[in-house]
Write a protein that binds this DNA or RNA. Sequence first.
DNA 1: TTATTTTGCTTGATATTGCAAGCAAAAATA
DNA 2: TATTTTTGCTTGCAATATCAAGCAAAATAA
Lengths: 113, 113
Amino acid sequence: MENYGEYFKALREAKNMTLRDVEKAADVSNAYLSQLESGKVKQPSPLTLYKLAEIYGVSYELLMEKVGYPIPNKEKKKEEAEKKSIAYRVGTISNDEELELLNYLKFIRNRKK
Amino acid sequence: MENYGEYFKALREAKNMTLRDVEKAADVSNAYLSQLESGKVKQPSPLTLYKLAEIYGVSYELLMEKVGYPIPNKEKKKEEAEKKSIAYRVGTISNDEELELLNYLKFIRNRKK
DNA sequence: TTATTTTGCTTGATATTGCAAGCAAAAATA
DNA sequence: TATTTTTGCTTGCAATATCAAGCAAAATAA
């Protein structure tokens, strides 16, 4: 995102907080927050983003993405999503159910020969 | 991790790469890499960590953790790991197998009543 | 062995993070 | 209305990230 300063400002105003409110909550100076919101900051540290994410109720990863940091597993997330798809479609599975499924899978895998 | 410099050095040596090899591959100066490995760097940028992770074949998140950055979803990751556990234990599943498993699950879930 | 290249490292230099202190306009209080 | 407080902002300042240039030891080639 090019001008993410406005975005941070919007987040803060959505929470009806002043720069000094956030300063206290996040332990980040109002001076720096002001600079951040007016686009004078390039790459705020992950820790700063983490604290702001908590306060503003958005995900840490989202803020990482906004400021242009690489975010973990952007690729792998999809592979994992595929692998997980069975589990997700199936919902929560009890231990007993899992055991039966594994046995059944073994069965169908041996069935052919 | 306190002294993660040695860790980066070990990663590089494990790949039998010189500082200048990594410099070329990651587009990070050998000067900086040397400082990183001798503990003179506190918080290398996420982008730098990302590039090194790729080259050294470790996860971006691991390196983030090593240098002390907060890492995303430290909680959720475990829930996900649990949900994924079935899929992982089962290995890759073909579409046919999945269909059969889902049907079988429906069967065992209706069996009781 | 001598010359060349490679390698790790140090040393300024520049850019950026994040802060403390302070300032002026706006808001709240007296 | 006059005074106090709040709020957003600017401005140095110290610390850090990162680099280009260069240097000396080690490795390689001649």
